[in-house]
Design a protein around this nucleic acid. Sequence first.
DNA 1: GTGCCGCCTTGATCGAAATCAAGGCTTTGT
DNA 2: ACAAAGCCTTGATTTCGATCAAGGCGGCAC
Lengths: 237, 237
Amino acid sequence: MAVKQDAKHADVPPICRSCKARRGGLCGALNTSQLAELAKASSRHEVLAGTELSDDETYSTLLSGVVKLTRNLSDGRQQIVGFHFAPDFLGRQFEAKWPIKAEALTKVALCSFPSTIIERMTNDTPELGHRLLEHALNELDEARDWMAALGRKTASEKIASFLLMVARNIDRANHPASSTSFDLPLTRADIADFLGLTIETVSRELSRLRSDGAIQIVNKRHISLASTSELEERCGD
Amino acid sequence: MAVKQDAKHADVPPICRSCKARRGGLCGALNTSQLAELAKASSRHEVLAGTELSDDETYSTLLSGVVKLTRNLSDGRQQIVGFHFAPDFLGRQFEAKWPIKAEALTKVALCSFPSTIIERMTNDTPELGHRLLEHALNELDEARDWMAALGRKTASEKIASFLLMVARNIDRANHPASSTSFDLPLTRADIADFLGLTIETVSRELSRLRSDGAIQIVNKRHISLASTSELEERCGD
DNA sequence: GTGCCGCCTTGATCGAAATCAAGGCTTTGT
DNA sequence: ACAAAGCCTTGATTTCGATCAAGGCGGCAC
């Protein structure tokens, strides 16, 4: 039984990458023949940093890279409303009702599935629908959690929370060494747009954390968390 | 055919109230016998203002009143992360992974359905699962839309956006006269906790909108929007 | 190499919203 | 009627983060 399970994963790795994601995978809901069909219909491709994702990528496993979700105001102010780190599953269209866009932050590798197949399988297999719903509700909880940060946390609490979030979600497969030392895949401007701050404030707060000994900053982008508990005390919740 | 549809709604009004909600209802996904079973198993009850909703209310139609969803920081700072206005359908548990609570803001009337039945029907009827997913995704879009307001809008833009949101969502059945004149079911403190502001700033910005002629304020709680387009210009997006 | 450009840091100053403070109105209880 | 408590408004002052400004560092084209 365990052997069969392993074999199943070995046969269709693109789909099953998402099983290890922070926001659960789908393949556990499907039987072997469904997985084979999905694998056959799937297409892998790459998206360059800065490119907006299209409707063809509605149902995809993010094999590597980071995607940001953004909402822009008319005068150009930008808010990042979420991230997808590999190996997340992307399970929705954007631009549905509100102008929320998905854009690759780094070079991104995707494994996409035709929406017709996913929708047919959802009809045949209620468990798949359950997982998609679960997935959406997790994203909802996460979005609401960040609303509290945006509305009520101070700049330094926002930075501390952000670093802990990245440490939790950074792609472990590509960065196995340590979850407390990682390359930030974001510019200071992206961090600022996520936290509702300016780049100067982000820079200052990071410097402050460094001089307080809570983190080390190597090469601007590479961060090392000296003390997770120190950050947890500073994150306000 | 149209007659049958009408009869269906007439037979099981509590379920179908949510069909008119801003975030779609479910009964369209179910056949007559399923609706009858749901109606039989449903229970109506009231919840007093200030009471937290329990797990028994996971699947409910909000017949009247307003519910707030809150996320608290450890030192007591509060962020309101969403509202449910009648006749919304509530379709999820709270306290799942993050400490988000649902609390009645006004006296609330609910029609609740046992989760066992909803889950069984979801297995039998994929269309019901689709609607629950759609519902969750709409809430997700809404949450992300407000993230942009929290992170990037000024105090006066937040207030303008808030008033327009309430005007769109206020229970039309109970307040049929006009969507531009309504009783705010919230205190200044609730508004502040929703917008990430203080009560003083909320009060000042409302006063400013009044003296600018964009709104009228009667009796503290009753607001009349003099000009929707004026507010739309002030809301930043 | 040199110059340019993008990204980041740090300092000085400014300003929007928070905080502190006082008082008004309405409701509730005695 | 009066007192007390909530809720709201308005004014004075403070503060946190934004804005303005200058410069550093690294990569890249030439």
